[in-house]
C-alpha cells in the first residue's frame, strides 16, 4: 500500500513548526511517531498535502515532575513513560497503561501526544488522562491554551485541538498521600487495542473513605469518557467489594459500546464493569500501600 503524494518537512524548533502549520493550514498535518498516521496514509484515509515531522523539535519529549504536577512532553513515547523512574514511583496508573500499549515496536515510536490528538476510542491514554484529571497543553503560532482532558476528547477521532496547534504537554496532578491508580485492560490477544479498559485514580481520606476518585473508560463509547455515575457512587463511601460492584455497574450503564470484531455490545458492557471493579481494587490496594 502506497500513500498518496505529499511534501515533508522536519523543522528543528517549535516556532518554526507552528509557523508552517499556520501558513499551510488546511493541508498540513503533524507527524509524530507515525504509528497511527502512516497506516492511515497508506489506506488513503488521510491525504494531507504536507507532513510536519516534529521529531527534531527539541523540548517536547521530557518527563519532569514539578511540585504539583507531572509534565509529560507531547512527543514522549509510550516506552519512555513506561520506563520513567518517577512514573514508576508515583504514577502507577500511567505505568500500567504505558506497558500495555500495543507491542514493543509501537511503544518505541508511538507518543502520548499522537495518541491523544488521534483520539481513537480504543486508545489507552485518553481514559487515563480523564481519570487522572490531567490537562492538555496546545500551542499555536498565536499562543498557548490548556484544555482539561475531560473537555478534550469530543468524538471518534475528534478532539478540541486545532489543525494549527501542536500538543506540547500533558500535565498530570501529583497524587497526594494515600492515593492510588490502576489501569485494567482486556484485549483479544497480545499487542491488541482494548476490548474494554478502565482507568482509576483515587484518594482515601483520613477516615478511610474515598475522598476523591476519577474513572475513565476506553473502547466502550464513541470516545473515551469519564464514568461520572460510577464516581458519584464511590465518592464519600468506604471502599468495599460491594461498592466496587455497584460502581462497575454504573460505569457499564453509562457506556455506549457498539458491536465489532472485539465482541457484542453486551459483552463489552460487562467487561467495562469488570475492568472497573479490578482497577478499583488495585488502586485501593495501592493507596493503602499494599500493592
Amino acid at each position: 500500500m502506497i500513500p498518496a503524494q505529499f511534501d515533508y518537512v522536519r523543522p528543528s524548533d517549535l516556532p518554526d513548526a507552528l509557523r508552517i502549520l499556520k501558513e499551510r493550514e488546511g493541508e498540513a498535518k503533524v507527524l509524530s511517531g507515525g504509528y497511527s498516521l502512516i497506516p492511515l496514509l497508506k489506506l488513503r484515509l488521510a491525504q494531507p498535502g504536507l507532513l510536519v515531522d516534529i521529531r527534531d523539535v527539541s523540548g517536547l519529549d521530557g518527563i519532569v515532575e514539578t511540585a504539583g504536577e507531572l509534565v509529560v512532553g507531547g512527543r514522549a513515547t509510550h516506552r519512555q513513560i513506561q520506563l520513567d523512574p518517577v512514573v514508576a514511583a508515583r504514577y502507577p496508573l500511567l505505568r500500567d497503561a504505558a506497558g500495555g500499549i500495543g507491542d514493543p515496536q509501537v511503544r518505541n515510536w508511538g507518543t502520548i501526544g499522537g495518541s491523544c490528538a488521534h483520539a481513537d476510542p480504543s486508545a489507552d491514554w485518553p481514559a487515563v488522562l480523564i481519570a487522572a484529571r490531567a490537562t492538555i497543553v496546545c500551542r499555536s503560532a498565536d499562543g498557548r491554551r490548556t484544555v482539561p482532558a475531560r473537555e478534550f476528547f469530543l468524538d471518534t477521532f475528534v478532539t478540541a485541538i486545532e489543525p494549527t496547534e501542536i500538543l506540547t504537554e500533558v500535565r498530570i496532578p501529583r497524587p497526594a498521600d494515600r492515593s492510588g491508580g490502576a489501569y485494567e485492560k482486556i484485549e483479544r490477544k497480545a499487542g491488541d487495542f482494548a476490548t474494554a479498559a478502565s482507568a482509576v485514580q483515587l484518594r482515601l481520606g483520613p477516615d478511610g473513605r474515598i475522598a476523591e476518585v476519577g474513572i475513565g473508560l476506553t473502547a466502550v463509547a464513541e470516545t473515551a469518557f469519564a464514568a461520572t455515575e460510577a464516581e458519584r457512587v464511590l465518592a464519600g463511601n468506604a471502599p468495599s467489594e460491594a461498592l466496587f460492584r455497584q460502581a462497575g455497574e454504573a460505569a457499564a450503564a453509562q457506556s455506549r459500546p457498539s458491536a465489532d470484531g472485539h465482541g457484542p455490545a453486551e459483552y463489552k458492557r460487562a467487561m467495562a464493569a469488570e475492568m472497573t471493579v479490578r482497577a478499583l481494587r488495585r488502586a485501593t490496594a495501592r493507596a493503602l500501600g499494599q500493592a
Binding site: 500500500m1 504509528y35 502512516i38 497506516p39 507532513l51 514493543p104 515496536q105 509501537v106 515510536w109 499487542g191
Partner: peptide
C-alpha cells in the same frame, strides 16, 4: 503491510521499528 506482523522490523538508531510504518 499494516504494521501488525513485525516481519519488516529493523533497528533505526538502535531502536526497533516496523519499517512499513516509517517513511
Amino acid at each position: 503491510d499494516t504494521s501488525h506482523c513485525g516481519a519488516c522490523t529493523v533497528l533505526v538508531d538502535g531502536t526497533s521499528a516496523k519499517s512499513c510504518a516509517l517513511l
